[in-house]
Write a protein that binds this DNA or RNA. Structure first.
Lengths: 357, 357
DNA sequence: CTGTTAGCGCATTCAG
DNA sequence: CTGAATGCGCTAACAG
């Protein structure tokens, strides 16, 4: 999308041969400005931060030099000195679809506020040990960012020097204020959808067993089966770990059973999409031979062939809620109550009535 | 730290017995560790950075304390001192779909490297002036990040203290190494698609006239017409500015011509979707009465009714290429040649054979 | 091997 | 009104 940044008054054209334009590589610091303007560093600082106590003439001259040199305060240096930065940090393990959708909602909600947004992926480097949450929070908090939103933390978030909101926390509930989706209810709805289509033999590809959401989704699945009077068959439940490749193995195992399921509820969309591919490669038609439903509603779900039926997490709203809560915490209010968002069924093409035996 | 907004009324902050300021758990600094371990700060620093010259026994003790206190080096402080941070910065105006898709590709490409990723939206605050590119780059570069990828800059990127890659730059070509899509070729392909469906009277909704991409897309359109021996009719080309509302006006003008077009190539998907809505409101059926094709392939394109035919920008690949180029720049190689990615036709439901007169 | 000494760029007292 | 001095948390010389 094109940003409508109306460039009404252009930047002052800096003539190429300008003697002021410094040679190259080095950043323009407050010292350069002070020297060029013939004032002290502290005066420049006052001008930049709009403090009182500077003569208009001095102020004007300094501003002139700042414009010419294209000086901007270093985020790093200033945040080291003063506690306030006006930056909200989003801490993620990596930028996967879920985090990106969240980011979208967060960015939109933050637009027009005084805050800028910084998203940090702190678990990209190899040997990515667990505990990226604490590390990122500790490395950025207290200095670079005024508050943090942590996406899908898998461990308890410890005490922090800045306000923190957790989105979709996978560990216990004793941490900071948290926002998540109704995993149990959503999984139950998904399974009920399959049951209502006439399926009786329904497989499940589980999520990461160390995560709370995975257990809740499995519970929802089992509850729906039980409510419908369908007995639970352990053979129909395999581990997918929320990952594409492992889900493919799980799907293969399920579909090569002597009596394979006619439908699969995968714990997330990634697994579901992987299951569809696996089914295709085994010569099965989705949804005629096999129905598949996922969980999340990532963008890819609407673009697959067939399009993926799923349960939607309102990621945009979750991001917006997180921002709202965080802003009120930054305003000094106490926020501790967790928020749970509803999950909604999105039926698409990958689910259909059960094949007649 | 929370600053009560009593500053205005002149009340001195930090009241003497303020137990509140003590309640916020302060960050653990290297000083705390040094003190607790009974060593000097520099020794701790050496341990943290795995430098040689520390006795095993000391090292062990320090590590023990670090673990107990949960200490992590402050990104801000360390990056202020040492130039290397192992962080790549992605600079965007805000997190909109295009940037997010890019981020996805960038994150995936960076996984397993030594670098972490920091994305910064520097144009969220109100009064977001143009020139966020320079400001963000100046505020982060040289200290916080080792290199930067700037997404859709609209102004020239000035000299910088760190390596920079621009993705989809909308201004001139004299800046840093740049990556964009084949706007001309893509537009030509889109128009040829319409021609191959039998359309001869093809309208065009232009993009923002101050942007290079808009001109290239119009050129591609005209080239395709010329190649097919169709004469160019200025009446069929209106300005849409890449925006929804202006595109709607343009579409209305086009469709109420005495001899309206049977197909429209819009300069971006947003305009195309707007044109479809306009056509519907005029009682036209898309694609039977009017074919519409866009440019970009934003996620919404696959979810509209009818789904939108378009030309796809390979955003994932563009992000990956940006990372590759940047990494080689960081490795000391000289990279200046721009990279151009291919655009590919994505035919969907909004285009069909021309209606028989 | 370890501690001491300088700053990195900036904001903030406190004297002139 | 202005500038010199101090320190934020940390790393990199250099001494001891």
């Amino acid at each position: 999308m094109i940003t409508p940044s109306a460039e009404v008054s252009g930047i002052p054209e800096q003539s190429p041969g300008s003697a002021l334009s410094q040679s190259t590589t080095n950043r323009v610091t407050i010292n350069d400005v002070a020297q060029a303007a013939g004032v002290s560093v502290s005066t420049v600082s006052k001008v930049v931060n709009a403090r009182y106590g500077v003569a208009p003439s001095t102020m004007e001259r300094v501003l002139q030099v700042i414009a010419e040199l294209g000086y901007e305060t270093s985020l790093v240096a200033s945040s080291l000195r003063s506690s306030r930065t006006n930056i909200i940090g989003i801490l993620v393990a990596e930028f996967e679809p879920f985090a990106l959708e969240l980011l979208n909602g967060i960015s939109a909600t933050l637009r027009g506020t005084q805050y800028d947004l910084m998203a940090y992926a702190g678990n990209l480097a190899p040997g990515g040990r667990a505990g990226w949450e604490h590390r990122s929070l500790s490395r950025l908090g207290g200095t670079l960012i005024d508050g943090a939103i942590i996406v899908t933390p898998t461990v308890e978030i410890p005490h922090s020097s800045v306000p923190v909101i957790a989105i979709d926390p996978h560990a216990g509930t004793s941490g900071p204020a948290a926002i998540d989706v109704d995993n149990f209810g959503g999984a139950k709805t998904a399974t009920e959808h399959l049951i209502s289509l006439g399926h009786r033999r329904i497989g499940h590809i589980k999520g990461r067993s160390d995560l709370k959401s995975a257990h809740l989704r499995e519970s929802g699945y089992r509850q729906a089966l039980q409510d419908a009077g369908i007995s639970y068959d352990p053979q129909l439940v395999h581990d997918g770990d929320y990952q594409r490749d492992l889900a493919a193995i799980a799907a293969t195992d399920l579909l090569t059973l002597p009596q394979p399921p006619t439908a699969i509820f995968a714990a997330n969309d990634l697994s579901a999409l992987s299951a569809i591919e696996t089914a295709k490669s085994l010569g099965l038609n989705v949804p005629n031979d096999l129905s598949v439903i996922g969980f999340d509603d990532i963008p890819e779900a609407a673009q697959s062939k067939p399009t993926l039926s799923t349960v939607r997490q309102p990621m945009h709203e979750m991001g917006a809620t997180a921002v709202t809560l965080l802003l009120s915490m930054l305003a000094g209010e106490e926020v501790t109550q967790p928020a749970q968002m509803p999950a909604s069924l999105i039926p698409r093409e990958s689910t259909a009535t059960a094949p007649q035996p």
